[in-house]
């Protein structure tokens, strides 16, 4: 299979609202990406026709209960078998913001022992509470397992914006240490909130914008094929999207988020 033949599925439901710019990011990185309504996938198409699944940002079904919970249940109830095969075949899955919430709620992350029937982690309400839209600094700390970030050098600090009110990554009470050990052991940590020079936030606001445990902004599964992150890389694709690009001159054309899309596209190309 050639790169031109690989298909990226950008899934949406009512309330998804970052699908257009996410598609643009994939397209500009050289992949063939389509926006597909969830109902269409259930009724007419097959998830297995696609090589990459992307769950973009938004407020799926209004998120009137815990963010991502409704869509996660729908995903498992209606496409459970396809999702299982997708994961088994190690086809890449990317969840951005609401997509990360969906993946966690669906038991697809952190995926310690296969797809979990219940969420093994949570994205709780921000501390301090409320919606927060801001650019943050992230340190890439993955050692090489994650196929979405292999083009990002380890320990590089990247700038990507967050915009959410439920992004506080956490594990169950008392399970934190054990789960963290597993994440470290499996090389599942990908991004942590830090300051411009790369010092981890240690929970301090606003460097860590939501109070996430261990400053975690994004994690992958043990195989490195599923990535979930709260920041929006599709909003940090071009240099003119950066918050102070007017002072940076036009030395670079692109911004840091592009590296994520480039990484997965290159991975797809390599596999072919």
């Amino acid at each position: 299979m050639k790169l031109e033949e690989t298909r990226v599925c950008i899934l949406r439901v009512g309330g998804t609202n970052c699908d257009i710019e996410t598609r643009e990011a994939f397209q500009k990185s050289g992949a063939k990406a389509e926006i597909v309504h969830f109902n269409q996938l259930v009724k007419q198409q097959s998830l297995l026709d696609f090589n990459v699944l992307v769950i973009p940002g938004g407020f799926s079904y209004g998120d009137y209960v815990r963010a991502g919970a409704i869509w996660a249940k729908m995903l498992i109830a209606k496409l459970g078998n396809d999702i299982k095969r997708f994961v088994e075949e190690e086809r890449p899955i990317l969840g951005i913001c609401n997509g990360f919430q969906v993946l966690v709620e669906a038991g697809l992350l952190p995926l310690f022992d296969g797809i979990s029937p219940f969420p093994e982690a949570a994205l709780g309400t921000n501390i301090p509470t409320g919606y927060n839209c801001r650019w943050v600094y992230l340190k890439h700390i993955n050692h090489g397992s994650c196929i979405f970030t292999h083009k990002i050098p380890q320990n590089l600090v990247v700038r990507i914006p967050v915009a959410h009110s439920e992004g506080r990554f956490m594990f169950g009470n008392g399970k934190e240490e054990k789960c963290l050990e597993k994440l470290l052991e499996n090389d599942q940590l990908v991004f942590r909130y830090c300051n411009p020079s790369g010092k981890f936030a240690s929970g301090e606001y606003p460097t860590n914008p939501n109070g996430a445990f261990f400053d975690i902004a994004g994690i992958c599964d043990p195989s490195g094929k599923i990535l979930g992150l709260m920041p929006h890389p599709e909003r940090s694709f071009f240099n003119w999207q950066r918050p102070d690009w007017t002072g940076e001159g036009s030395l670079c054309v692109h911004s840091d988020g592009k590296l994520i899309f480039d990484s997965v596209v290159e991975y797809l190309g390599r596999r072919t």
Partner: peptide, 21 residues
């Protein structure tokens, strides 16, 4: 107040209501 409004969604905001850090 402005941080509670998503001013970046669609990825097309070139000059933003809040500039830089």
């Amino acid at each position: 107040v402005v941080r509670t409004y998503d001013h970046e969604v669609k990825g097309s905001t070139v000059i933003k209501p809040l500039h830089g850090d």
